[in-house]
Amino acid sequence: MIPANETFNGTFPFEPRFNQAAGFRMHYVDAGPQHAQVVLCLHGEPTWGYLFRDLTSRLSTHYRVIVPDHMGFGKSETPADRSYWLQDHIDNLERFVLSLDLREITLVMHDFGGPAGMGLAARHPDRIARIVSVNGPTPFGQASQLERLMANAAEAPWFQWIVQAHAAGRLETVLGELGFNILSTLKLNGFERNEVISDSWLRAYGSHFANPSDCLGVIGWAKGFALDAHRFEMPDAAAQRAISSKPALAIWGMADRTLGAAHFLPLFSELFPSAPIHRLPGVSHYSFEDAPVAIASLIEAFLQQTTQRALA
């Protein structure tokens, strides 16, 4: 686990906070005015709240930006006696949100933060105000979701590696040393802006995974895919109607080889047929690293526009 006050040479200057509602020490950032609109940022694999550092700095002037680290990632604990399937992360997120009584939430979701956030939305559609998908899938009970997920997995190098490594019995061995191979894992999933790489940046993404026992979160997400252990939350008809009526935005790095736009943007449009989609050429999977300013500007404009419409 990363020390609570670690700022990585000032690149992550946010006060650490911790919450025990999910039965482990979950770290989160809570930046900005406490009574402002809530923007809840949900990371994926193998990142943590550091991914949203630029967005947090930009939005927290006017919004309450909350960024939790999932169990087994970032500054959160990695308990040895827990499972790390998607449904566990949804359970943890639900308990976290209810403990803080967060309402009128704008979800900003990346990677498996998408299925986790949509799981929260399925359980508590009344607490969700907006949906923002940034290279983050939005499965929500559509008939096509499994087909699209499997078609993507057949093409993506990351998912192909998971299946092959699991079959060969080396998945846990390789991912159990993620602190030493973090750069190759991030590059396999994809980012284009190599100039972001520095000692501080590598420590930020790799230092949580110092020992195999620290890697249960990243192993769980990959192994859960190999074992078909992850379970997507299935919304009821009322939840599906409620969420599909919310303002939504998709921003997608079109060079993403892990979550292909051809598979996941149609999934988004099935749920939000009138929602805008911004396609970013030359931006890969870790889009917040490749295009932080462009993405923050798009999200900020979306928040302003939808707030004005709601007040009109």
Rank of each mutant, 00 (worst) to 15 (best):
R241N: 14
D256N: 06
A250D: 09
I251F: 08
A222E: 05
M234V: 15
D228T: 11
F225G: 05
L227M: 13
E233Q: 10
I243R: 07
A242F: 06
D228P: 02
S245Q: 13
E233G: 03
D228M: 13
D256A: 07
A222V: 05
A222P: 01
W252A: 05
A238V: 13
F232Q: 10
K223I: 05
A248Q: 00
E233T: 12
A222I: 01
D256G: 06
F225H: 07
A255R: 11
W221T: 08
H230M: 03
W252L: 07
A255K: 10
F225K: 02
R257S: 14
D228E: 14
S245A: 15
T258C: 14
E233F: 01
M254W: 12
M234Y: 11
A229T: 05
R241P: 07
S244Y: 04
A250R: 01
A248P: 00
T258D: 11
T258I: 12
P235Y: 01
D236E: 09
H230R: 04
R231H: 12
K246N: 05
A239R: 00
A242K: 09
G220R: 00
P235I: 03
A238C: 10
A242H: 08
H230T: 03
E233P: 00
M234L: 14
A255E: 14
W252M: 08
G224A: 11
G224S: 10
V218H: 02
A226L: 09
D256L: 06
I251V: 14
A239S: 11
A248I: 00
D228Y: 11
G220W: 00
M254D: 14
Q240C: 13
H230F: 03
A229I: 05
G253K: 00
M254L: 15
R241S: 15
A250I: 05
I243G: 04
R231L: 12
A250N: 12
L227Y: 07
P247K: 09
A229P: 03
A222F: 02
G224L: 06
F232Y: 12
D236Y: 04
K223E: 13
G220H: 01
A226Y: 04
A248D: 02
A248L: 03
Q240P: 05
P235F: 03
L249Q: 01
K246P: 08
K246C: 12
L227A: 11
A237Q: 14
G217Y: 03
A237K: 14
I251G: 02
S244N: 12
A226V: 06
S244Q: 13
A248C: 07
A255I: 10
A248S: 04
G220T: 02
P247T: 11
D228L: 13
R231V: 07
A229H: 07
S244I: 07
D236V: 07
A222G: 03
A238D: 14
V218E: 07
A242W: 01
A237F: 11
I251K: 02
A222W: 00
I243M: 13
S245G: 12
P235K: 03
I219C: 09
A226H: 06
D236N: 14
I219T: 06
W221S: 08
A250C: 15
I251C: 08
R241F: 11
I219F: 08
M234E: 15
R257E: 13
G253T: 04
I219W: 04
I243D: 07
W252P: 02
A255Y: 09
G253Y: 00
I219K: 06
T258Y: 05
I243N: 08
A222H: 03
F225L: 11
F232C: 10
R257M: 12
A239W: 00
G253E: 02
D236G: 09
K223V: 08
